[in-house]
């Protein structure tokens, strides 16, 4: 029925632990045999505690760190086999939205330049088309046109995250990886940004891979949830069944750990 955008099979990422010359080198498997599929227009959340390997999975899928084994297909492209300029050409089909809106924008560039950068790297559009595209993007994420000329430090955290989102949308990617996009923002702004992400998803039929440790956010955003623990996916289910009927003991613990206020 629906088209599979991203298919990950048995992905492994490992980091060397010891650097001794005489003992056999040991490795930490940060991601250990992760598999999942993601359809166009849907949102998959990867949840888990710190160090569970969720961000590492995302980085490996985006070819920002090296995967040790496994397969990642974006559409019909085998991502892990690409090199050099082939890889650079594919990069604009998936984009990142980062956690920290303060370090994710280059402090020396104006907002319009930051949003335009993926288009510049792609190098397919004329200057005029790029300008127009930047205007559209600013409108889409709820920024005013006169803010184009400002520098990142002149924006608030929420506004900066909007710039980050506009940048991620610039090349009309098939897949957007959101790496804890709201965890650095305060709660009122979190809601704004999450609503914006949902609005954009329905407008442009975007596909999100959503990394988070906040189950409240996940419940608000996602169609499917993969729970990661120590580098493995321990439970994979659609949103309703995961939240209503968790199977794995770790998922139950995770749900029980969500802070609630009882008066």
């Amino acid at each position: 029925m629906s088209e599979v955008i991203l298919s990950v099979k048995d992905l492994q990422v490992r980091f060397p632990l010891t650097r001794s010359m005489f003992t056999k080198r040991k490795y930490l498997y940060a991601v250990d045999g992760v598999s999942f599929e993601l359809n166009r227009g849907e949102t998959l959340a990867i949840v888990g505690e710190s160090g569970s390997g969720k961000t590492t999975t995302a980085l490996a899928i985006a070819r920002l760190i090296k995967a040790y084994a496994g397969q990642v297909q974006l559409g019909d492209i085998d991502l892990l086999s690409l090199h050099g300029s082939e890889l650079r050409d594919v990069r604009n089909r998936m984009q990142f939205i980062f956690q920290d809106p303060y370090s994710s924008l280059n402090p020396r560039l104006r907002a319009e330049h930051i949003v335009r950068e993926p288009l510049d790297s792609q190098g397919r559009l004329s200057a005029q088309d790029k300008e127009q595209r930047v205007d559209e993007l600013f409108k889409a994420v709820g920024l005013r046109p006169e803010q184009k000329r400002l520098f990142p430090h002149q924006f608030s955290g929420g506004q900066r995250q909007r710039i980050g989102i506009a940048r991620a949308l610039a090349t009309q990617p098939d897949l957007i990886i959101c790496d804890e996009p709201v965890s650095a923002l305060d709660v009122a702004v979190q809601a704004q940004i999450l609503n914006l992400l949902r609005k954009l998803q329905s407008e442009f039929s975007l596909t999100y891979l959503f990394i988070s440790h906040d189950l409240g956010v996940v419940q608000h955003m996602c169609d499917y949830v993969a729970v990661m623990y120590k580098g493995k996916i321990v439970e994979y289910a659609d949103r309703l069944s995961l939240f209503n009927n968790p199977q794995h003991s770790y998922t139950k613990e995770l749900l029980a750990a969500v802070p609630t206020i009882t008066l």
Binding site: A62, L64, R88, D89, R91, N92, M94, Q95, F96, F98, Q99, D100, S103, S104, L105, N106, P107, R108, E117, P118, S121, Q122, G164, R167, A170, T171
Partner: peptide, 26 residues
């Protein structure tokens, strides 16, 4: 290691561009 460099890299910037126009000015 900052995220805006990762952002440039993930949008397809070449190493030369990363060195000279992203990292060096900063």
């Amino acid at each position: 290691e900052l995220e805006y460099v990762t952002a440039s890299r993930s949008s397809g910037a070449t190493n030369a561009k990363l060195i000279f126009s992203v990292i060096l000015p900063n």
